[in-house]
Amino acid sequence: MVKYAIQRTALMLFTLFIITLMCFVLIRMLPLAPLPIGDPHTPVIEARREALGYNKPYLVQFGIFLRNIFTKWDWGICESAKYYGKDVAALFASKMPPTVLINLYSIIFSIPIGIALGIFAALKKNTWIDYTISTLVMVCISVPSFVYAFLIQLLFCHKIQLFPLVMKGGTDWFSWPMFVSMIPAVLSLAFGTIAGFTRTTRAELTEVLTSEFMLLARTKGLTKRQATVRHAFKNCMVVVLPAIFGSFIGILSGSLIIEKIFSVPGIGELYLYSINALDYPLFMLLTVFYTAIGLVAGIVVDISYGFIDPRIRMGSKK
């Protein structure tokens, strides 16, 4: 198991390295953003570019880039107007709290609901309850998140005025008004997560409930309730738990659209900014970040399968 985990991690680091190299070269190949003349930061940035080896071959540049990261945790400085001259890594860290909080609230809110709905639908399989829940899941998964965001903003924020239209400014992340102003964004994110968990749980539990060991459990004399709670849930969790771990890793990444609509000063918004302002150092950091999140979530899911269920230790025999 440990060997498998190490193997996977090594493979992941390799993949991350290749992707970083590819993106780095592709970004450095782009023409540089012109710097405003006469600005006090301009000579600083020009000197920096020289130090980063902009005139040298790409592989040398990549070497300097990696050396700076590993020795000084230096990802470069912002080159565009809004955050001119700021340290990219520090800026990135300062944008973290709102994204993490919103996603965390959303997950804490939606996982129990999703699993409960899924269990409910599976137990009442092929009744109107199941059909209703499955149809709603279908709708929630298909409809893009900006449509929910719009409906929530229109109904709760504009018509009823229960919540503010956009997120409150300031850095008092744990105050009550801040929490209230986050609710619309949290809700918009929750729909998709709830639907996803409901679907997974329902599919898994339906399969477990029809398997033969359930029949055996009943034959042994367990009531349906006992059999479900003791045997079916455990087996169903083999699939659901890794999904939960995966989504906890995913909370870091945020959503570009939701953050834009509700003016959340988070990672997604920063990413969008770096794209529109063509701030390459910022873009590079965020690209590496998003790639890493995706890869880590993937292996966490895979490895946790192995930890939870000894039957699925893929590749461990190698």
Partner: peptide, 10 residues
Amino acid sequence: DILSGVPFTV
């Protein structure tokens, strides 16, 4: 594997 690791937005 490597290609699928790159986020689509990027």
